[in-house]
């Protein structure tokens, strides 16, 4: 090989050996040398590529001055005329991840060269930039450096040599759909998969479902007659007239409604705001979705300790997971503060 590929490395103040949080506000600067984790990358690159410069920026500075910091960093990177950029890896450092992701995205979009970084799966930078950059999964802390470096370096080398890469073969987070011409039509492929499934054989779906992270079950209630129970619904039950204007789909809010002294819901006083199912039955008798009548009865019978003073309601119709999580986190906080022991959540 006549000449090595040129790589620029982006790191934060910590990996540059300048300092920790107290130095997180330093402005971008660059040195035409290999610093910190760059040494490990250089070892894997061997004769094929070299780090020609390192660009450093404090994590707080970058995140507080997003546009100007990104521009300065990109200008420094550009000055080396590189073939590829490596950022981080950032592990689970949130601000560093955001910076690495933003730098990698800008490099790919503005300089038209590939950029590779590494992050832990929960780094907020991952969700934000996984469609834009090549992001390799790492451990949550710098203890994972030794494992992350070879994966990032090998992916970088393949990209430099313009070899074909894939998330499965080269271990990076799926970026976006890739179009390809399959040999067999969809119906044939679907039936083949079904037959494999029936035979109990392995098959790879072409449409993986999103992954949901499960939570540990809450502890069982030991004495119902002392428990305070709250009602929550995604079925859109609201006081007549929908005073909070909860949207019939893609809800952006939830409601909290006082039911003290109310024994059951009626057609005249409550309705559903939900636009994703036929509202006739719920409007006729809202207890069909939010079972206040029965739960109130059981409270009076002493079967449960008490029914919480408020019920919470939103519309689960095309509502984003992010919104639903946000609503429920707020609701949960209120329920905890009010000493609620258990929740009955109804969905339509």
């Amino acid at each position: 090989m006549t000449s090595k590929f040129k790589v620029v490395h982006y790191i934060n103040q910590f990996y540059a050996g300048i300092g920790g949080e107290e130095k997180a506000d330093i402005e971008p600067f660059t040195k035409a040398e290999v610093i910190g984790p760059g040494i490990a990358f250089t070892n894997v690159f061997g004769d094929e590529a070299e780090i020609v410069g390192t660009v450093v920026c404090g994590d707080s500075y970058f995140n507080e001055n997003l546009e100007s910091a990104e521009k300065k960093v990109i200008d420094f990177i550009k000055s080396y005329n590189p073939d590829l950029v490596i950022a981080g890896p950032a592990f689970n450092a949130g601000r560093y991840g955001m910076a690495c992701g933003a730098v990698a995205k800008a490099v790919m979009e503005e300089l038209n060269i590939p950029a590779v970084t590494g992050m832990y799966e929960e780094n907020p930078g991952l969700d934000m930039f996984k469609k834009d950059a090549y992001i390799v999964p790492t451990k949550s802390s710098a203890a994972g450096m030794r494992k992350a470096v070879p994966v990032i370096a090998r992916l970088a080398l393949k990209l430099l040599k313009k070899e074909e890469v894939s998330p499965e073969a080269d271990n990076y987070f799926v970026r976006h759909r890739v179009n390809f011409q399959a040999e067999q039509r969809g119906s044939q492929r679907a039936v083949d998969m079904l037959i494999k499934k029936l035979k109990g054989e392995e098959f790879i779906t072409e449409y993986p479902m999103p992954e949901f992270d499960n939570v540990a079950p809450g502890e069982a209630i030991t004495d119902l007659s002392k428990a305070k129970i709250a009602l929550v619904t995604s079925g859109g039950i609201v006081p007549k007239g929908n005073p909070d204007h909860i949207e019939s789909s893609s809800a952006s809010k939830y409601g909290q409604y006082d039911i003290s002294g109310i024994d059951f819901l009626t057609e005249a006083t409550y309705e559903t705001a939900h636009g994703g199912y036929d509202p006739v039955y719920a409007n006729q008798d809202p207890n069909r979705v939010l079972p206040l009548d029965v739960v109130r009865e059981m409270e009076k019978e002493g079967k449960i300790g008490s029914l919480h003073q408020f019920f919470y309601s939103t519309v689960g119709n095309g509502t984003s997971v992010a919104n639903a999580k946000k609503f429920a986190a707020e609701i949960a906080e209120k329920l905890r503060a009010d000493g609620v022991d258990a929740v009955i959540l109804t969905s339509t």
């Binding site: 609701i331 929740v343 959540l345 969905s347």
Partner: peptide, 22 residues
């Protein structure tokens, strides 16, 4: 929503028609 509430330790029972979704 079930999970966000249960995460705080409050047990939640989910009454729903489409069990596979739950």
């Amino acid at each position: 929503m079930v999970k966000e509430i249960e995460k705080t330790g409050i047990p939640v029972v989910h009454i729903c028609t489409v069990v596979p979704i739950s």
